[in-house]
């Protein structure tokens, strides 16, 4: 299966006018860190708890900026009230790129983080798109457009743990 390259994801963020990346490192998206930190058009805002990502994004959006949130599914679930109050409650048009820890393509899931991820998004009525390889990258643009149109968070699930981005070259 083709891989999801960091450059492809970064290109999607730039193409869609992201100004700030509010993030907490995780094993699915750590590949992006070096590229993001070297990209002058993006301002990185590191948080220590994923719930802060939603309130930070709400403030950035209120001030006219276009943040994207980069977190892991575990932290997303821990952030439920912040997602409710700051993300959904304040109609923040933000794409949340969520590392899909434990995701497999064959339906046998042994990680409860993965087991509950889509159920959690369903509970909050948040639409989501799965991105596993470069061929899926246009779904990131679809998510940006939907977030802007619907004025609410939209998720992109990054199903590439310890694959693709994380392969040493």
């Amino acid at each position: 299966m083709a891989e999801l390259s960091p450059a492809t994801v970064l290109e999607q963020l730039k193409k869609n006018g992201a100004t700030h990346v509010v993030w907490l490192p995780d094993s699915e998206t750590n590949f992006l860190y070096v590229l993001m930190s070297e990209e002058p058009s993006l301002d990185l805002v590191p948080v220590s708890r994923e719930g802060h990502a939603f309130s930070t994004a709400a403030g950035l959006a209120a001030g006219g900026k276009k943040p994207v949130i980069l977190i892991q599914n575990t932290g997303m679930m821990e952030s439920g009230d912040s997602l409710r109050g700051w993300g959904l409650g304040m109609n923040v048009p933000v794409v949340m790129m969520v590392g899909y820890r434990g995701w497999t393509r064959h339906g046998v899931i042994n990680d409860t983080a993965a087991f509950y991820t889509e159920r959690f998004l369903h509970a909050f009525n948040i639409n989501y798109y799965l991105v596993e390889s470069d061929e899926d990258a246009d779904r990131i643009s679809i998510a940006f457009a939907e977030a802007q149109r619907e004025k609410r968070p939209v998720a992109v699930l990054v199903g590439d743990e310890y694959h693709g981005f994380n392969v040493s070259r």
Partner: peptide, 23 residues
């Protein structure tokens, strides 16, 4: 003024940070 009440407890500081960074 942004009298937001209590969107979700614990988030005001991060919201203010985002707003300050944006402008």
């Amino acid at each position: 003024d942004l009298p937001l009440g209590d969107p979700a407890m614990g988030g005001h500081a991060s919201f203010a940070l985002g707003l300050a960074l944006a402008m």
